[in-house]
Nucleic acid binder design. Structure first.
Lengths: 124, 124, 124, 124
DNA sequence: GTGGTCTAGACCACT
DNA sequence: GTGGTCTAGACCACG
């Protein structure tokens, strides 16, 4: 469970956590039933407020990625393989679509964008 | 000079205006020297506060897209053709790159992303 | 009577005119009794509003540099040689003093400032 | 962090604040990483509107003197020692040069100006 | 608690 | 008429 925080980023910290954990769950790195570390511990390690971690956890629970058992902790929920594709799509497609539309509004051509995509996948 | 506001959007109104106008300037629809309509008029037409329009204008001036002559009005600045490409790139590539990286981190394949791009350009 | 306007400058146009004309009078280039050109003519030549020229003229009259004869025009006032020094001082010393204080507040040393002064006089 | 407001001054309040704080940062009195007091507190102490303070803060951030972390506060940015000289110069030299040129155009001699400089540094 | 956004409305300087 | 500044006061997102 790696989480990297960029305090200078425009995206709020709790959202950075949410995006990274949800991605790990969908990639299968965190498996159904796995227990998440206590929020106080995460907060200490990341040097951020407990409230912020709590907010990220809530977002994850709300989206169905984790569930809470009062007094015991938080666990990774069971996301059936078939649903993962849908979730991924729901998470990302709208955002990407917006970004692409913005690119087009600036006059970027389809070719230019395709080149960027290719580069992104070539990098690693 | 078309501006469309979405009050429900997460991105602040003044930023929506900024993005649309900067895009129009970079596409060359608004030409160097063109006089922008008075902020009060824009405010009335868009049914928003003068101050919100002013904030957008300030952002545009700050970014070098327009310049102000107190008492006379605001004018489109001279953005050399060669710089336009750079500005567009600087504005958009970083954002798009981030989005693409996030898509990949969710496990989206290159093919899935290319399909989204194709769809975006097919729509209109 | 040369006047050069910089529309992009922060100092208002009427003040640019005021400063240049008052300087010309104090240097003796415009002499006591000389008739100034009609404001409409000045406005046309400088491509600015008549109102702006009027404002500059009023400022000059208020400061005692020119006087108006209704229906005939505006004339350079009689500024005795002895008074010129005082007027110059009054005009400029306060402003320069402020500027120097600001330089000091930024930590500029006396030597650095003296170097700037020397350079200013060395240029032409 | 001393700020003194002169409500009677021609220079806008937010600019007075900007100039004083930027000077303190460049002199090294406010150090990189230092947390600025909350804008509402500053507003209360100076008996001005929060918005006016915010405007000053925005100008400082825009110029790279401070950075903001929403929800946490504003912090003094890291201005490398080497850049400080440049920033100071860029800020002040142009203004001082203009002022000196104006003095010369009024016929002030180099000696007179040097005397003013000497006096400015003799005062305190 | 912090800053970010938006509102309505006033007054001033400049053209 | 234009933009520039300042006001008071509200609501939201973030930590």
């Amino acid at each position: 469970m790696d989480i990297v925080i960029d305090p200078a980023s425009e995206t709020p910290i709790y959202r950075q956590i949410y995006e990274q954990l949800s991605a790990e769950i969908m990639r299968g790195e965190l498996r159904s039933g796995d227990c998440l570390p206590p929020i106080r511990m995460v907060a200490t390690e990341l040097r951020i407020s407990v409230i912020t971690v709590k907010k990220a956890w809530e977002a994850l629970e709300h989206a169905g990625f984790i569930y809470t058992q009062a007094g015991r902790g938080c666990f990774v929920a069971d996301v059936p393989e078939t649903q993962r594709g849908d979730k991924r799509a729901a998470l990302v497609i709208e955002r990407l679509q917006k970004e692409l539309d913005y690119c087009r509004s600036l006059g970027l051509s389809k070719e230019e964008i395709l080149a960027l995509v290719a580069r992104s996948f070539a990098e690693n």
